[in-house]
Amino acid sequence: MRDVAFGQYYPTGSPIHRLDPRAKLIFSLLFMIFIFFAKSYTAFLYVFIFLTIVTVVAKIPPKIVLKSLKLILFLLIFTGLINLFLYDEGRLLASWWIFTITDKGIDFTIKLALRLALLVIGTNMLSLTTTPMELTDAIESLLKPLKYIKVPVHDLAITMSIALRFIPTLMDETDKIIAAQKARGAAFDTGKVHERVKSLVPVLIPLFVSSFRRADELADALDARCYNATKNRTKMKKLKFSYRDLIAFLILAVLIVLIMLDCYLTKAPSDSLFFGTDYYIVNLFKSWIG
């Protein structure tokens, strides 16, 4: 069985894998925000080139990268069709009952699909190059200021770490119990709905029993290892920004500037996704660069 604690992590040891996870988390957020400012096909091309560079540097096979699109394929097609038929501005190309197809509608649909696809591929890069453990550390570190308003950031981080640590163990255990009950003739994939639900009982009960037993033992082990001995807990691993993160940020900044310039040069289109707030930011940007 695969180790799900690694999520989609695809280990290649590339420079992107070695970026500070906090940096990667922030970059991903920036990417998510600014991709909504990509309005023209030129801007999409910039994003595409950027993602191609990231994929090549991260040494991740394109096949794996595209795999993430499979999951949202249905969403892409569904929203695509709705937009295609219900968008009624622009030159009418065809119409039937309440459905219309316009030139702007086609344009809008293609852009929306592109934006969604690039967004998913981009954010997926984070989970392909960062382990959940690193992400936990990053979140803990970024949330540190919350300590001062009495949020138990550290306990939350440990809980998260333990949860990640036990997911593969419990998955393994579930597999074993299912196998054991199957060997006793249990069928999980046939029968009516209520029969199938009922058939889960012989799996869930042993799973609960064993989880409680594990939790008990784990509690003893935590105590034996001096958990809660002091409030001034230290941490072995210190996240450190390095020159690598700076270079990565500069590359991302180039993309952002290109997108914003393109956005500025393209005449304000009518497909605002943020109810006008994006225009506010664009105008702000315009006023900056005079």
């Binding site: 255990e173 074993k176 119990i177 196998a179 054991a180 009950q181 199957k182 060997a183 006793r184 003739g185 009982v201 012989p202 799996v203 009960i205 042993p206 029993v209 064993s210």
Partner: peptide, 16 residues
């Protein structure tokens, strides 16, 4: 599964 019976490791963990 009727012909071949299988007793797994720590089979008591399958009791429910």
């Amino acid at each position: 599964r009727q012909e071949v019976g299988m007793v797994f490791q720590y089979p008591e963990y399958q009791l429910f």
